Simulated assay, not measured.
Amino acid sequence: MVIDHKSYSISGTEGDHSLISSDDFIQSDAVLGKTTIEAPVLFKGIAHSVNATNSLVLKVLSASPSAYSANPESKLLNPPSLTGSAISLVSVVQARNNARIMITGSLDLFSNKLLGASVQKAGSQDKYDKSGNEQFVTEISKWVFLERGHLKAVNLRHLRVGETDEPAMYRIKDDLKFSVEIHEWSGKSWELYVADDVQVQP
Score class of each variant (00 low, 15 high):
32 L>R: 07
64 S>L: 03
33 G>S: 13
31 V>K: 11
37 I>A: 02
69 S>H: 10
9 S>M: 09
33 G>W: 08
30 A>K: 10
21 S>L: 05
19 L>Q: 11
33 G>E: 13
21 S>N: 09
14 E>R: 15
8 Y>F: 15
12 G>P: 12
51 N>T: 11
8 Y>W: 15
32 L>I: 01
28 S>Y: 05
28 S>D: 14
33 G>P: 09
47 A>R: 02
56 L>F: 11
49 S>M: 07
53 T>N: 12
72 P>W: 13
68 Y>I: 15
60 V>N: 06
19 L>C: 13
67 A>K: 11
9 S>P: 08
12 G>E: 13
49 S>V: 05
60 V>K: 03
24 D>C: 08
19 L>H: 07
49 S>Q: 12
51 N>H: 12
64 S>A: 14
51 N>L: 10
40 P>W: 03
71 N>S: 15
10 I>C: 15
12 G>A: 08
45 G>H: 01
68 Y>W: 12
59 K>H: 06
22 S>Q: 00
36 T>E: 11
14 E>Y: 04
45 G>K: 00
31 V>S: 08
70 A>T: 11
45 G>D: 00
34 K>L: 14
47 A>K: 04
54 N>H: 04
9 S>K: 09
52 A>W: 03
48 H>F: 00
14 E>I: 12
40 P>M: 02
72 P>H: 12
58 L>Q: 12
62 S>G: 06
40 P>N: 00
27 Q>A: 14
34 K>D: 14
62 S>A: 13
44 K>G: 07
20 I>F: 01
40 P>Y: 03
48 H>A: 01
24 D>A: 11
22 S>M: 02
28 S>P: 04
44 K>T: 08
62 S>D: 05
15 G>W: 07
45 G>T: 03
37 I>V: 01
26 I>P: 03
35 T>Q: 14
61 L>M: 02
25 F>W: 06
31 V>P: 03
41 V>F: 00
73 E>N: 15
68 Y>H: 14
37 I>M: 06
72 P>M: 10
24 D>V: 11
58 L>C: 06
38 E>R: 11
